[in-house]
Design a protein around this nucleic acid. Structure first.
Length: 901
RNA sequence: GCGGACGUGGCGAAAUGGUAGACGCAAGGGACUUAAAAUCCCUCGGGGAGAAAUCCCUGUGCCGGUUCGAGUCCGGCCGUCCGCACCA
């Protein structure tokens, strides 16, 4: 490799004028160089990780992609961040595991099959091949020898084995749950396939339908999953908070309300409710049941209008947001419940569309004064309200509730024996009394800890997923497939010409003999939720070759946990919570030795882009649009027709808005390094980043600038002495200080994943180096001094190493140009010399009454008394004091001085 | 509806409770060039004083509070975005 940059250096006379005349140089050719270096890395196998390497391990992982066909900018951002960490940790001396795979099961493959008549398997593997090629063009330091695809029977057979292990361990259950049913297509719909309450293909109004399905008993781990959140100190606080709220632990009371027999269907005598507010029992105005509550069904038998109302409630999707935002509606069953503290006090029992059967007991008592939903409900049905908690400072005699419920603190009122108590005291008192009271030999109430978390339903009525290894026999029930018969593989000869599950339609696949009795039986035709596939792939990566078990215990225990996991915030709850559960379940069944799979978590922001819209309302893609800048204004027009288009708001890149940018095109025209650099440079990694053409061009210019700079520095550095000089001139020392300051800063920033700040520090250092080279042009004696040449060589070597994790190809090219015959990808990270980071003097800002008014420079080791004397002698301070003594002088060592006058 | 986040120049942003705006983009001016591109230099939150160095006032969505000191902490509003259990 030859460096053909500047070989002629013309000194300039003065800084204010043009400092240097640069010869035209060859530009860095990213397209050629990137392919060349990727080949070198590949041939030398430097990113293949050995499981028997004795060095300390570091496991960095980015969330693996769904093989949709092409990578998008979100992938580029995600994988760039992970790659920076991987390359950095490798340079720091760790044995780094950085694998990649494919979350390859899922609905889009089936949609493609229906729409384009491609087999899901063919479609998926073609997509994997295309995306792998794209990922390779990014120059990621991945160990491809560990690649897994979840749709590979070699992967999912272990998942089936674990399903059976979990079943044996009591962690799998079968129960009923509701799905979105499309009555026209006769098929189950995902929530995203329900649009405004209708099926996306048929347009039919969706109904809720109950199916018997398989569940993982995640609720058995509700308490440990909640408690362990406190130990995840390298997780973002917001993710822990979201999971905490999702699990939703609450302490409350189960209370049995007797029913007035005259109003109650035969065979029914009580309602059991769960409440976290037993203190408000004297504010109760009504009871409410979930539409699918058994008592509601019983009451509906003799009440066709109620039955109709319950039917109506089912004519909605199952999505929570839809249930919550639907208008609150209720239907009076005519049943009366008896207040547990007053036999003469009865409450009307409603069926209400906002009560969930899945939470608590599926029934509540409503206290409208202190719960907004209950208040909205009584205001609609004119049931009135009585406040029972009086806020501090309010007069109980005049305190009333009209439109806004009060859920704050206060003292009990209108509550007989509870009056005057705090909420906590009242809760305790009610619990104590009702626990003691009994009806039918059972206590009326009992304390209970309740969780919002529901069990994880994994059954999907789809083809392209991991088959659930169960055989249903009329005699023996649900029988596990014997382990010797695993994997249960998907049949390949399936058709997608009619709705529903192709496995169910298949002529022979499901018909098998019962493993227990040998009689006629049929396979389970449901497949597993794809979240199951992604709940253990990180454990599989530690030894993806072992064919006999999901994991090799010695390998998985050595590599896990993942030290740094990186992915989108959209996975904050489901994927991460399921993975935490699954790892615990794997531990319980002997497949791993730990509870928490991810020691460090980072959630990156989205990639967003401007939108463009034509006058007729059509979206235009960035590639079709030309932007002109006239002064401060920007104008957009279609390249093809010249038609002016409106520049719309900046939004998440999406196909529907057509505001996507193709990574291939960016890498093709600017190179992978530029795309990587821009992804890191512009925004903090956890925030959204706006992809702009201008920003990319800036990154491109900087890459070229680095190439020239390294060329110039190399000229000075190449005659540097091999040994470190004993002494350095002031100029050389200043350069060394700048070098080590930048080194310390960038090292710290990468460690903290503050990539954008690290990038800024690299810019600053490159600017500094540029300036030093320019300045030295006027003093050829200093340039040729051996100590300066040595300091320059150190500086430029450090510069290249600092940007190597971010722009690895350019860094290799520069590294070679600097005369190294090693790879920068394998070079050890340099260490900052502490002595160079500390100055003899400090310049402190001086504030007067908290506003900066002056600066003072003092020796580093000055005492507070010395500093105070120097500060009080400053003109600005003397002026402010006007002869008086200061009220106070606050000296924060090394930071600031504040004089209070 | 519930839960979570975010809000700083023209724009992306930086700032362990301690000099607000580092660094980049855009813009303007200049150098170089026959010209363009590229490159290099200067200016760049708003307002004011000064010949200039420089100095003063104001400013981190809005309103309050805590503090010697608040972009940062607390309370309340406004706005924007994300998740909500069958998208991955």
């Amino acid at each position: 490799m030859t460096h053909r940059a500047l070989s002629c250096h013309v000194p300039a006379s003065k800084r204010a004028e043009t400092r240097r005349i640069r010869m035209p140089t060859d530009r860095y050719n990213a397209r050629e160089a990137e392919a060349r270096w990727q080949k070198v890395w590949d041939e030398r196998g430097i990113f293949a990780t050995k499981n028997d390497d004795p060095r300390q391990k570091y496991y960095v992982l980015e969330m693996f992609p769904y093989p949709s066909g092409r990578i998008h900018m979100g992938h580029v951002r995600n994988y760039t961040m992970g790659d920076v960490v991987a390359r950095f940790k490798r340079a720091m001396g760790f044995n780094v595991l950085h694998p990649m795979g494919w979350d390859a099961f899922g609905m889009p493959a089936e949609n493609a099959a229906m729409e384009r008549k491609v087999h899901p398997k063919e479609w998926t593997y073609a997509n994997i091949a295309a995306m792998k090629k794209q990922l390779k063009s990014m120059g990621l330091s991945l160990d491809w020898s560990r690649e897994v695809a979840t749709c590979d029977p070699a992967y999912y057979k272990h998942q089936q084995k674990m399903f059976l292990d979990f079943l044996r361990a009591g962690l799998v259950e079968r129960k009923k749950s509701k799905v979105n049913w499309d009555p026209v297509d006769q098929t189950v719909l995902a929530n995203e396939q329900v649009i405004d309450g209708r099926g996306w293909r048929s347009g039919a109004v969706v109904e809720q339908r109950e199916l018997t399905q398989w569940f993982f008993a995640i609720t058995k781990y509700a308490a440990p999953l909640l408690e362990a959140l406190d130990t995840l100190d390298r997780w973002p606080e917001k993710v822990r908070l979201m999971q905490k709220n999702w699990i939703g632990r609450s302490e409350g009371l189960l209370i049995r309300f007797a029913l007035d027999p005259n109003t109650t269907p035969e065979g029914e005598s009580e309602i059991e409710i769960f409440t976290t507010r037993p203190d408000t029992l004297f504010g109760a105005r009504f009871m409410a049941l979930a539409p699918d509550h058994p008592l509601a069904a019983a009451a509906a038998k003799k009440n066709p209008r109620l039955a109709e109302f319950i039917e109506e409630c089912r004519r909605h999707g199952t999505a929570q947001a839809e249930i919550d935002t639907a208008e609150k509606q209720g239907f009076d069953t005519g049943i009366k419940a008896i207040h547990p503290f007053d036999k003469t006090w009865t409450l009307p029992v409603y069926v209400a569309n906002f009560i969930l059967m899945e939470y608590g007991t599926g029934a509540i008592f409503g206290c409208p004064a202190h719960d907004q939903r209950d208040l909205d409900f009584v205001n609609k049905y004119q049931l009135g309200n009585v406040p029972v908690v009086c806020p501090p400072g309010q007069d109980p005699k005049t305190f009333i509730i009209t439109d806004t419920a009060y859920d704050g603190d206060g003292r009990m009122i209108n509550s007989r024996f509870l009056n005057g108590m705090t909420i906590a005291e009242a809760k305790e008192e009610v619990a104590r009394r009702l626990e003691k009271a009994s009806r039918g030999n059972q206590p009326v109430a009992q304390r209970q800890v309740n969780y919002r978390l529901r069990d994880w339903g994994i059954s999907r009525q789809r083809y392209w997923g991991c088959p659930i290894p169960i055989i249903h026999c009329e005699k023996c029930g649900a029988v596990p497939v014997p382990e010797k018969d695993l994997p249960v593989t998907l049949p390949e000869d399936v058709t997608f010409d009619r709705p529903g599950n192709p496995l169910d339609h298949h002529p022979t696949w499901k018909h098998v003999a019962c493993p227990q009795c040998g009689g006629k039986a049929r396979r389970e035709t449901d497949t597993m939720d794809t979240f199951v596939d992604s709940s253990w792939y990180f454990e599989r990566f530690t030894d993806p070759w072992i064919a006999t078990a999901p994991t090799d215990r010695s390998m998985v225990d050595a590599w896990m946990p993942v030290d740094q996991y990186i992915g989108g915030i959209e996975h904050a709850i489901l994927h991460l919570l399921y993975s935490r559960f699954f790892t615990r379940a794997m531990k319980a069944t002997g497949h791993v030795g730990l509870d928490e799979p991810f020691a460090g978590l980072f959630t990156q922001g989205m990639v967003v882009h401007e939108t463009y819209r034509t006058k007729s309302g059509e979206w235009a893609s960035p590639a079709e649009v030309k932007i002109e800048t006239i002064g401060d204004r920007r104008r957009a027009s279609l390249i093809a027709t010249g038609e002016q288009v409106e520049i719309g708001p900046i939004e998440k890149m999406s196909k529907s808005r057509r505001n996507t940018v193709d990574p291939d095109e960016i890498i093709g025209s600017y190179g992978a390094d530029v795309a990587r650099w821009f992804m890191l440079s512009d925004s903090p990694p956890d925030r959204d980043v706006e992809w702009t053409e201008r920003g990319v061009q800036g990154a491109f210019r900087f890459a070229q600038r680095l190439w020239r700079l390294v060329g110039e520095a190399a000229e000075i550095a190449k005659a540097a002495p091999a040994d470190r000089p004993a002494e350095f001139s002031p100029a050389a020392l200043a350069l060394r200080k700048a070098t080590h300051l930048a080194l310390a800063k960038v090292t710290d920033d990468i460690e903290k994943l503050h990539f954008n700040v690290g990038v800024a520090a690299i810019y600053e250092f490159a600017n500094k180096l540029n300036e030093v080279i320019g300045d030295m042009g006027s003093d050829s004696g200093a340039v040729s001094a051996p100590d300066f040449r040595w300091a320059m060589r150190e500086a430029v070597n450090v510069l290249v190493q600092l940007f190597a994790p971010m722009m690895p190809h350019l860094a290799e090219e520069c590294w070679a140009a600097l005369g190294h015959d090693t790879l920068v990808a394998q070079a050890a990270w340099p260490q900052a010399e502490r002595a160079l980071l500390i100055d003899d003097t400090l310049t402190l800002p001086v504030q007067i009454n908290g506003k900066k008014r002056a600066e003072v420079t003092v020796p580093r080791d000055a005492t507070n008394a010395t500093i105070q004397a120097a500060v009080l002698a400053l003109d600005a301070v003397e002026r402010a004091l006007d002869g008086k003594a200061p009220k106070k002088v606050i000296i924060v060592p090394g930071r600031i001085v504040n004089v209070v006058v």
